[in-house]
Every structure is written in C-alpha cells, then in structure tokens.
C-alpha cells in the first residue's frame, strides 16, 4: 500500500469526499457517454485513498477522454496528443512523492503515443494509466482507431477498416508492464475495485477501461455489459479462484498444455481441474491476454476482466533517486565553485 494512505488513518488530513474533487467546470462530454461513469467512479475511489488532493496530479493527452483533468479538483495538465505518458514520466521522476494519474484514449495511447506508452511500462514509473478504450476516435468525430476491429465501418473507412487491431493488454505485457487490468464503464463496482488495486500497486498500473462512445461507436462493448450476454461473454478474474463463467456459472477454462479450452461443469467436468487464476504468473497472463477473439467467432473464449498480472519490480524514479543518493554519499554535495574551476587553472597577474 502507498504510504500516503496512512495519513488519513492517522487522522491528520481531513476526510475528503467525492464532491471535494468536483471542479467548477461544466462537464462537456456528450450525454450518455461512458466517460461520465468513469469520472464518477474515480471521484468515489480517490477520496478513500487518503491522499491529500494537492498531492494528486491528473495528466492527459488529447481526446474526449483527455478532458478528464478539468473535472478533477486536483492538480492537472491537459497536454498534447499522445504525450501524457511522457509528461507524467518527467513529473514522477522529479516529484516521486506525488500520486500521478494518466488519462488517455485508445488513439492517444496506442496510435500517436504508442512509443511513450511502451516505454513508460518498461521503466515502471509508479503511476496509474487509465486507458479509455472506445475503439474509435471520439473527439475527431468518428474515425477508426488502433483498437477498432478489422472491417470496422467508420467515417474514414466506409468500406471497412483494413488495420489489424492492437490488443492493448498483450502489448502491455510485451512491454513488461507490471500491472495489467481490464474493466468497464458499466460495471461501477468492478471499476472501483480495479482502481483501488491499481493505486495500491507500486509501479505502472495499466488499466484498460472499455468505454462506450454512444455517438460514434455505440454498443461496441454491450455484449460484455448487457444482461443477456454478459455472463456468457465475460470472464471475471479473481485471484486464486478457478476460471468460471456462463449463464449459471456452469462453464470453466482448463489448460491443455498451453491451450485454453472451455469445459462444461454441468457435463461433469470438475472445478478442481480448472485453471486457477494467479496474478503473479506471467506465462498464464500472456495466455489470458490472448483471450481476444471476436465474439462472432464460433467457440470463442470469453473476454476476461480484472487483474491479469501483477509483479513487484523496482520503479524508475526510486532507482533514479537511489543513484543520486549514492553519488551524493560518495562525492559529497557538489561545490559549484569547484565545478566551475575544473581540474586545472592558471593565474594571470
């Protein structure tokens, strides 16, 4: 857990509530947009964390989602398209004690900002990335994005998109991310719990949030949120629990070697044979991230939600400051006049 969470327990900071995080700015997303729910869950969870709001910074890129910081009564920066991760890296490196949150979209993080996205993951700054994935460019009014499925008909692809989409979680694992999770705008409880877990992870927490853009890509994720389909199409991951899904929790996932297969508990398969979720298992996390079939495919695997992977690995900013500390111990505090004079001087009278 972050040390900052202790403060509230000690009663030193007055208790914050959600409305303390609301700004005087009018929220400008389209009515019905999934972003509203995400904002609400963030404003619900953050006060519980016990971090004074002046120590919190939200940094975003450009996109509908990236408007987010304007609505959070914390420090915030609405930067430029794709670069929030890079800005946050510099802030966290210089001010490690701050709680830094990045808000980004699928285009922002994975298209124009793809490079910084993979690099922040490998460096493992202790920040939280909230990737609002709506599989579309919202702000620019409906072009396909790097997560849009092949064949997607959008403003810029009237005959269907030719691009093969990114799998954001597989990409994050490939970049050696240390906390990889997926959640959705329409499951407030799950979203909240995922945010809590993301915050308590020390390292870069990558949270992909399926977000409905009701104007340009309405219903992209309804299959995972609608009552009729949800139970069959989603696989809710829980640590140390078997992978079970289905209408009546009657289906399970078993590993045949490295191959996941669906078994029916109703037809006599035993829960003991099922794959038990282990957040620390990188190999299994990679297999889980590949549960990415198009739901129209016959016998497809359900889409997992929850924490796929968590690993404790040193953070860049700590290493940086340790290195500075050890040089300081070894050399002593630098003396400017000695630096200016250098090693060899001569005097002219």
């Amino acid at each position: 857990m972050d040390s900052t969470t202790q403060v509230a327990a000690n009663g030193q900071a007055p208790k914050m509530v959600a409305k303390d995080l609301v700004t005087d700015q009018e929220v400008r997303w389209c009515p019905g947009c999934g972003d509203y729910s995400i904002l609400k869950q963030v404003q619900t969870v953050v006060p519980e964390l016990g971090i004074p709001r002046e120590n919190i910074v939200f940094i975003s890129g450009i996109g509908c989602s990236s408007r987010f910081p304007y609505y959070m009564e914390t420090y915030g920066m609405h930067s430029i398209h794709g670069r929030a991760t890079a800005v946050a890296s510099g802030l966290k490196a210089s001010r490690p004690e701050l709680s830094v949150w990045i808000v980004t979209g699928d285009g922002d993080a994975l298209s124009i900002g793809g490079n910084h996205f993979i690099h922040i993951l490998r460096r493992n700054f202790n920040v939280n990335i909230l990737l609002f994935n709506n599989e579309i460019y919202g702000l620019t009014k409906g072009q396909y994005s790097p997560t849009s499925p092949e064949g997607a008909v959008t403003k810029s692809t009237p005959n269907g998109s030719l691009d093969h989409p990114f799998n954001p979680l597989a990409l994050s694992l490939g970049a050696d991310g240390t906390f990889i999770a997926r959640t959705m705008d329409r499951d407030p409880k799950h979203l909240q719990e995922t945010l809590r877990r993301a915050n308590s992870h020390k390292g870069t927490s990558m949270v992909e949030i399926y977000q409905n853009c009701n104007v340009f890509n309405d219903g992209a994720f309804f299959i995972y949120t609608d009552k009729e389909t949800k139970k069959l199409e989603t696989l809710m991951l829980e640590s140390s629990k078997p992978l079970i899904f289905g209408e009546n929790a009657d289906k399970g996932i078993k590993l045949d070697g490295f191959k996941p297969t669906i078994v029916s508990l109703a037809d006599g398969a035993s829960a003991n044979d099922l794959w038990i979720h282990d957040e620390k298992d990188a190999v299994k996390a990679n297999i889980l991230a590949r549960f990415f079939d198009n739901p129209s495919k016959e016998n497809h695997l359900p889409r997992p939600f929850g924490i796929f992977y968590q690993e404790d690995r040193h953070c860049y900013e700590d290493q940086m400051n340790n290195q500075m500390g050890s040089v300081l111990t070894k050399k002593g505090k630098g003396k400017l006049d000695e630096l200016i004079a250098g090693k060899e001087v001569w005097v002219i009278n």
Partner: peptide, 14 residues
Amino acid sequence: IAAICSIIGASFGG
C-alpha cells in the same frame, strides 16, 4: 518528443 515532454512534467512539478 518524450524528452521535451518529460521536462514539461518536471517544470510543472517545480
């Protein structure tokens, strides 16, 4: 780009 963005973050941080 990341280089200059990182210094924007640092400057924001004082």
